[in-house]
């Protein structure tokens, strides 16, 4: 098996998947306990799960990196990775589509219905639908998040980070390692600053705007969309940091660097999602 049968690398038996499964089991169980007031047990189970998963990630990805660096992956394997990453990103697109769909549904369908005809007359007598709004049964006021402050600046940050990864990619192809490292570093920094602003924005929203997750249609979609996006930026940033470290160690060649490309695809995807967010969550 470790022998390269027909050229396509087939890995030897591995314990990483089962480690990952055990980790996920604890993680899920811990999360459930946490949400049901499981107290200290919950924390222990959850952290155990998270620790196992982290251990698995280091182990598994480390193995893959070693295999890649020792030249075990031929071109066909490389193509496999390309297909896989493409389809994975497609699945992520569908995940976000689900939440964009929810936003669309509430804004365009359910809120107007609540303010219409018999539904309004019999159930929500004084309800007027104007976006942004929480909903007919919630009375607390909140201020929506404006588009042209931090969010616009964040857009700028992410767009430039798209440019810097591409710049780094060019460098990689032309074997300019310094430019590669600087480009990646810049991208990571942009990502981190973006996240910093996002955290600040959330704090501001909770403290000053009374804009919380509980604020009905607007609050729920705002936090779920930006939250999952922020989570993806975090993952992307971590992956970029790994790429940065690997570049510093001297990994990647102009021909063999799909890991880098995969991360940059992912980063661009996160970028595009943000543009969608900026337009439909903040702006319109």
């Amino acid at each position: 098996m470790s022998s390269q049968t027909g050229g396509y690398y087939l890995p030897a038996p591995s314990h990483w998947p089962i480690v990952g499964s055990i980790g996920i089991f604890f993680l899920a169980l811990g999360a459930v306990l946490m949400m049901n007031d499981g107290g200290a047990t919950a924390t222990v189970v959850l952290t155990t799960g998270a620790a196992i998963i982290t251990y698995m990630m280091f182990g598994w990805f480390g193995t893959v990196i070693r295999e890649s660096e020792s030249g075990k992956y031929n071109e066909q394997v490389d193509v496999s990775y390309r297909w896989a990453m493409g389809w994975f990103i497609f699945s992520e697109v569908m995940f976000f589509a689900c939440f964009f769909g929810a936003l669309f549904y509430m804004r365009v369908l359910s809120l107007p219905w609540l303010a219409e005809a018999d539904t309004q007359a019999l159930l929500w007598p004084d309800f007027q639908n104007t976006w942004p709004i929480s909903g007919p049964g919630l009375s607390e006021k909140f201020t929506p998040m404006g588009a042209w402050g931090i969010p616009a600046f964040n857009t700028l940050l992410l767009l430039s980070s798209g440019v810097t990864v591409t710049w780094a990619h060019w460098a990689l192809k032309k074997e300019k390692r310094a430019q590669l490292i600087w480009g990646l570093l810049a991208t990571v920094l942009l990502g981190v600053v973006f996240l910093g602003f996002q955290v600040y924005e959330y704090a501001h929203a909770y403290k000053d705007l009374n804009l919380t997750l509980e604020q009905g249609a607007y609050g729920a979609t705002f936090y779920m969309l930006t939250g999952f996006h922020g989570f993806h930026v975090t993952i992307g940033t971590i992956m970029l940091i790994v790429m940065l470290l690997r570049s510093i160690y001297g990994h990647f060649t102009p021909r063999n660097h799909f890991a880098f490309e995969a991360v940059s695809w992912y980063w661009h995807f996160v970028d595009v999602v943000w543009l969608g967010l900026f337009v439909v969550v903040y702006w319109l």
């Binding site: 929810a102 509430m106 359910s110 919630l138 997750l213 009905g216 729920a220």
Partner: peptide, 15 residues
Amino acid sequence: GTHFFNPAGGGDPVM
């Protein structure tokens, strides 16, 4: 505390 499926918060079970 989200209200995706709760009309009081502008959501809809049918969604």
